[in-house]
Write a protein that binds this DNA or RNA. Structure first.
Lengths: 337, 337
DNA sequence: TTTCCAAATGGAAACGTTTTATATCGCATG
DNA sequence: CATGCGATATAAAACGTTTCCATTTGGAAA
């Protein structure tokens, strides 16, 4: 009873028509007489025919599959993004092949080539840093590539992001406005443009605009994890001139920061104020609840996928470099004004 | 310079051999003279040939792609599982097509059929409950299906799990051993076998073995989220006879429980003790750190995928119903013995 | 040398669709 | 009653591989 291996040809014979007609019916082509359509549809149902997408892909050169390259799907941030991508993909009848790169250049390149070999119709890429080898590969890609939550570098690809510089500025400024003359900045590696060029720049600009000096040791770099946030803050707490306001590059690091503060016997927000970044679900799973920059991960994924479908359908594109709005969600890790 | 549309035929011509020989070289078939192999390899490099996996799939009836059906990838639990699956898949040169079902029967069935249409070589399924319609579809599947963190029901599929009944027993017993004569149980919907039959059964058995009665209202059902755990505990706290020990069906719910307790001015573990389930990364991101049942999600995914590869390679399978060991990780939400 | 056999190579048929060019049908029109 | 034309349907050629079978090659044994 395997609905297996019944082909378009079997259906054609059963219905007494040609393959081409069956193909038209299956693909909703209007040039089929209703009675014929019915006849074919009945045959399809009777035989339990299911079109072979591989054969279809070979003949049509379209696989209705897109590749998604992500550093690590087990990271809540990328998981949200992926969900946004998948939802929109489903909406447009695409499936996604998902691959983890661990932000390794080799894995990224390898994955890209595997996906291209599988004839995906397009690719959505996420990664902290666009290595130039990878950009070379991108240039050779026969299918469109869209960046999600990933900054363009050297090669002008369609991309969906928020304004990280401004977001960092806003967060830092908010802390400064609360009367702090020093603001600690704990984030990920500076090699990643998003930290090194954007968030850092926003942070410095906010200090500057407030007439505050930048202290080298007010900035500590980690690797995005809870543990690295905790550790960074522990280190900072040992200083006599420890900043009483902290802007953390991700929510997970912010949780680490808050716990380090609490473990040392201080209170958030009374002794220290903390602002995070991303507004992952974690932000409300801590006491005090975290004030954080809202980066709409799901939306970034969804918009990126939508952008890709537009490119695939050769639709009009207003702007291939999409900047989604951000805002700061105020919660209890900041004192009331 | 698109390495596009250069076919095996072009390579054959360039190298002065037949397609068949090129195919052999590409597939590592040993029956090729080293000099010929070199000649072909050079032609491949020169032309930038990349085999078309779709054509390959059509000819060989293997796509080296497996389908993964998951309720929601943005859930940290499934994201971890998916990561385990993908890592092992990569190891065996498979790619995964990932789809979210939202635990909806219709989406599950639809997704399954889409995947089968795409000629995946196998499928890994995750879902709280196996609807009988879905089981019917599974029976008709021409490719093997493996369940991950999902209990078999009615149809004997290969599956990878832990012993949920025993895990719940252990957790409950641990709380009872701490002197509690009532243990609250906050978990997900009972329609899901994993709660309704396994965790619940383990909970009751532990009570029974300790000679304690089961109180209907000591159990509250939620939907796995932080918010539902919080809410459930708030409700429980309003009772005069509120249990001072809580076993939560997931870590996320446990976080909600702990915060509800703390919000009400009580201390964990001094006033209340809490045990969670799953040991997601959340468990260490809370104060006090959460004591929790370790369910090795990554491993379940990895083992499930490995099991699938074994089936695909027709390797010997010792046991198609794999039960991975569990244990309880003791942290600060439980008092020292 | 010849003979033989394994190793290496080639030819061509599958695989299951889509798509293009072509044929047929039915019917209004002149 | 022929003509022409749109609407439908068909036949057959792609699509780019793998794989089966046949053929060639080259060297060892006779």
């Amino acid at each position: 009873m395997n609905s297996n291996n019944v082909t378009i040809y079997d259906v054609a014979r059963e219905a007494g028509v040609s393959m081409a007609t069956v193909s038209r019916v299956v693909n909703g082509n209007p040039n089929v007489k209703p009675t014929t359509r019915k006849k074919v549809q009945d045959a399809i149902d009777r035989l339990g025919y299911r079109p072979n997408a591989v054969a279809r892909g070979l003949a049509s050169k379209k696989t209705t599959t897109v590749g998604v390259i992500v550093p690590d799907i087990s990271n809540i941030f990328f998981a949200d993004l992926a969900r946004g991508i998948e939802d929109v993909a489903t909406m447009y009848k695409y499936n996604i092949i998902l691959g983890n790169s661990d932000s390794s250049r080799d894995k990224e390149v390898h994955l890209l080539n595997t996906l291209l070999g599988k004839q995906v119709d397009g690719i959505i890429f996420m990664g902290g840093r666009l290595h130039e080898d990878l950009v070379e590969e991108f240039k050779k890609s026969p299918v469109p590539i869209v960046l999600a939550a990933t900054l363009n570098q050297g090669y002008d690809l369609p991309a969906v992001n928020i304004d990280y510089e401004q977001a960092a500025y806003d967060a830092t400024q908010m802390l400064i406005n609360h009367g702090h003359d020093r603001v600690g900045f704990i984030t990920g590696p500076l090699e990643q443009q998003i930290n090194g060029e954007k968030k850092f720049a926003g942070y410095r600009r906010a200090l500057e605009d407030a007439g505050l000096p930048f202290h080298d040791n007010d900035m500590i770099l980690g690797n995005y994890t809870y543990a690295s946030g905790l550790e960074a803050m522990q280190k900072m707490l040992q200083r006599d001139d420890c900043p009483k306001a902290i802007f953390a590059g991700t929510d997970e690091m912010a949780l680490g920061v808050i716990h380090a503060i609490q473990d040392a016997g201080y209170s958030v927000p009374n002794d220290f104020e903390v602002v995070g970044h991303d507004n992952t679900r974690l932000a409300t799973m801590i006491r005090p609840k975290l004030t954080t920059v809202v980066q709409p991960m799901y939306d970034i994924g969804a918009v990126a996928m939508r952008l890709l479908t537009k490119i695939l359908n050769a639709e009009e594109i207003e702007e291939k470099n999409v900047v989604l709005p951000h805002r700061i969600e105020r919660r209890d890790s900041l004192r009331q004004d």
